[in-house]
Design a protein around this nucleic acid. Structure first.
Lengths: 246, 246
DNA sequence: CGGTTCCTTGAGAGAACTCAACGTCGGTGG
DNA sequence: CCACCGACGTTGAGTTCTCTCAAGGAACCG
C-alpha cells in the first residue's frame, strides 16, 4: 500500500556498505559492534508524494532508520494547518516519539527521494531484550531528538532560528555547499516562521554576504557570523562525535 | 556539596511505599514488575535555592527520578536570559536529554520542596544490560518528554499555550484545585510568554469564568472551554494510562 | 502550452514584547 | 512593632517583530 514499486521508486538497494554512520545497526565509524538491528531490518524506498510512512494515530508497528534522503513528520490541526514536527536525515531513527504512547504522534512523508530501514516492533522488542546495546542506541537517539526539539522550542528571532537551522543542516549533511532537501515553506513551518519571512531572512543573509544563496543550494560564506547569531539557540554545543557515546 | 542537610532540607524520607506511579522503578499501579531501578537508587531532598541538581555542561553522572515536588531545567544564554526547557513533576525522569551527548543540556533546580531518586550511571548502565525492562521504561520516558516538547514548540497564541499548560498540569498534579508549584515568571519563560502576558491571560480566563484564580491556587471551572482552546496544541491526545505501555 | 508549486516582494495589521510604575506579600532586623 | 527589602503579581502605554494579504515571477511537468 502506497509503496508500489513504481519505476522511479527504486534507489540504490544494493548498498551493502551502509552509508549511514549513526544507523541503529551500526556502532559508529566501523563495523566493530553490531546491535543486531541489521539482521531484522529490511530496506524500503520512499518517494515524495507516494504516500506516508505512517499516519498520525496509527498504532506503531515498526521503527525506521533513515539511510538516504529526507523525510518530515507533521500533524494537521483542526483548522487544517500543517505543523512540521521534525525532519529526518540519514542516521535518524523514525518513530521514537511514538514509543511512549504506542501510537504515532505524526504523519511521516518523504520530502526527497529517500531510503529507510524498516524494523518491525514485533521483532525489535525481543531483540532489544537480547541486545542491550540496541536499547542504549535507541535511548541515545531519542535523547538527541529531545535535545534538538528543546533547543528549537525557544522564542528566538527569525534570524536566529534560520541561522541555527542552516548550521545544523550543514553539520548533518556534510561539508561543501548546503543542498536543502526541503522547501522554504517546510522550513518556515518547522521553524514557526511564515514562508515570506524565511525568504526575506535568507535574502538578508545574502545581502550581508553571510551566505551565497541559490534557490536550494546555499553556500555558507561567513560561518562565524551565523554561529554568533545562532549561539543563543544552543543547537550545536560542540562537535562531539556522537558515534562514541555509550 | 550544595546539598547540606540544612534543618529544612528533609522531606519524608521514610516513604517506603513509593507515591509515584510512573517511577522508573515501578511498572505502574502495582509493584508487580520490578526494573531493578529501586535496588540502586538512593533518595535525596532538594530545596529551592539550595543549589542545582546538576549544571549545564556537567558530564552526566546520574539519572534522577522525581518522587515529590517540582524542578525546572533551564539554560542561560550569552545575554544572561534564562530559558526554561521543562518542568519535572513526580514520575518524571531527569537527565534523559543528556544521554545522547553524555553532557547535561541544562541546569536543574527545585522550584518547590522536592524529593528525587538518584541512580548513578555507573550502576545504571550495567543494570540496563541485565534488565531490559528498565531500558524500555527509559525509552518510553524520553519518548514522552519528546512528544511534550514537540507539542509546545508550535506557534500558538498565549491563550492556547496557557490553556494547554493548565490542563496538562491539572492532569499531572491530580484532580481538585490546581496548585501551581512555579511562579508566573517561570511559566511565562517556559511557554515563551512575557510575565505580563501570563498574568493578563489568566485574568482574562477569570473574567470569562473559565477559572477561579487565587494567586497560585487555580480552580478550573469551565474545563471544556480550556480544552477547546488548547486543542490545536495537541498536548493531551487522550487519557491513555501510561502505566500499561510496554 | 496551461497548470502547479515554489519563491519573491510590498504594504498594512496585530499579537506579544518592552518599559515603567505600583500593590502585595513574606521575611528580616532594628 | 514597624521600617525596610526583595520577590512576585498587576496594570497601562507605546513599540516591534512577524504575520497576513495580495500579487507577480520563475521553474517544473504533464
Amino acid at each position: 500500500m502506497a509503496f508500489d514499486a513504481t519505476p522511479q521508486n527504486r534507489i540504490s538497494n544494493e548498498c551493502l556498505v551502509c552509508p549511514v554512520n549513526q544507523c541503529l545497526g551500526r556502532s559508529g565509524g566501523g563495523c566493530s559492534t553490531r546491535t543486531g538491528f541489521e539482521t531484522l531490518a529490511s530496506r524500503r524506498a520512499v518517494m515524495p508524494g507516494s504516500g506516508a510512512l505512517y499516519h498520525v494515530g496509527d498504532s506503531l508497528r515498526s521503527l525506521y532508520s533513515v539511510r538516504a534522503g529526507c523525510l518530515k513528520a507533521y500533524t494537521v490541526d483542526a483548522e487544517g494547518n500543517e505543523r512540521i514536527r521534525g525532519f529526518y536525515l540519514p542516521g535518524d531513527a523514525i518513530g521514537l516519539d511514538a514509543i511512549g504512547e504506542g501510537r504515532c504522534m505524526s504523519t511521516v512523508v518523504a520530502v526527497a527521494p529517500s531510503q529507510v530501514c524498516v524494523a518491525p516492533l514485533d521483532e525489535l522488542k525481543p531483540l532489544m531484550l537480547r541486545q542491550p546495546l540496541l536499547a542504549t542506541r535507541m535511548i541515545e537517539q531519542t535523547s538527541r531528538e529531545l535535545a534538538l526539539a528543546l533547543s528549537l522550542s525557544g522564542d528566538f528571532t527569525a534570524d536566529q532560528r534560520l541561522a541555527a537551522f542552516l548550521l545544523y543542516m550543514r553539520q548533518r549533511l556534510g561539508g561543501g555547499a548546503l543542498r536543502l532537501p526541503m522547501s522554504q515553506r517546510d522550513i518556515g513551518n518547522y521553524l514557526r516562521l511564515a514562508t515570506e519571512t524565511v525568504c526575506r531572512t535568507l535574502k538578508s543573509f545574502g545581502r550581508k554576504n553571510w551566505i551565497a544563496p541559490g534557490e536550494r543550494l546555499i553556500r555558507i560564506i561567513d560561518e562565524y557570523a551565523l554561529q554568533r547569531l545562532a549561539a543563543p539557540v544552543g543547537l550545536l554545543h560542540d562537535h562531539t562525535d556522537w558515534a562514541q557515546a555509550a
